[in-house]
Amino acid sequence: MSHGNHQQRLNESLSALMDGEASELEIQRLLREADAYGGEQGQRWSRYQLAASVLRGEKVAPVNLGLAASISAAIADEPPLAAIAEPQAANDSGAAQSRWWRPLSRGAVAATVAFAAVLGVQQMQAPQTGGELVAEVERPAQQPVQSVPQPSGFLVPSLNTRSVSTNPQLVPEQRVGMGASAQMQAVPSPELMRHLNRVMMEHSEQAARVGSQGMVPFARAAYGERPPE
């Protein structure tokens, strides 16, 4: 089996996966290859996804595949905090303070850049919600919960028990004619988060009064509540 043949078969498997028609065997093969060679298949996959997005008429942000790698590299290059802080803190407290903060702020900047980039891309890929009533299937943050056993016919992906923020997750509406930079500025302000938390709580409490869901709305109302600070 020549390398060229092998490569072609992998590409076909990748196409099949893209169309949702890959067999178990093909998926296994792709995963194995991804482990072995990494980059090339991954980039091809990204290109396929991008191509499908373009054909669907979605707005597409140019994806810099090297971004994640360069951010990890930047973070890996940082000396550990303790290594710098300890010897300095002993004698020179003023200098120690500035040394302390330098790597921290650099790391924070890297994290911010990564966050902004991810946010931007996600917004770009958000489905356009015209007036059409089709998008429940694509509701991003409402992941189904696990529940076994079920009455037949309910879809129940796996449960994640790690704790997450109780803040609402934002999905801004895509605005036609706006550049990517404008989209990226939509980082939620504390004021906005407070407002959303408040209206969700008020709604749940009122809903408890008029609905018939027993105590469920109370659970919702109390869910996102924060202890007074």
Binding site: Q142, T166, P168, P172, A186, M200
Partner: peptide
């Protein structure tokens, strides 16, 4: 802000 925010089923 124009858009949606999701928390759980809400």
């Amino acid at each position: 802000y124009r858009g949606r925010a999701v928390r759980g089923a809400t």
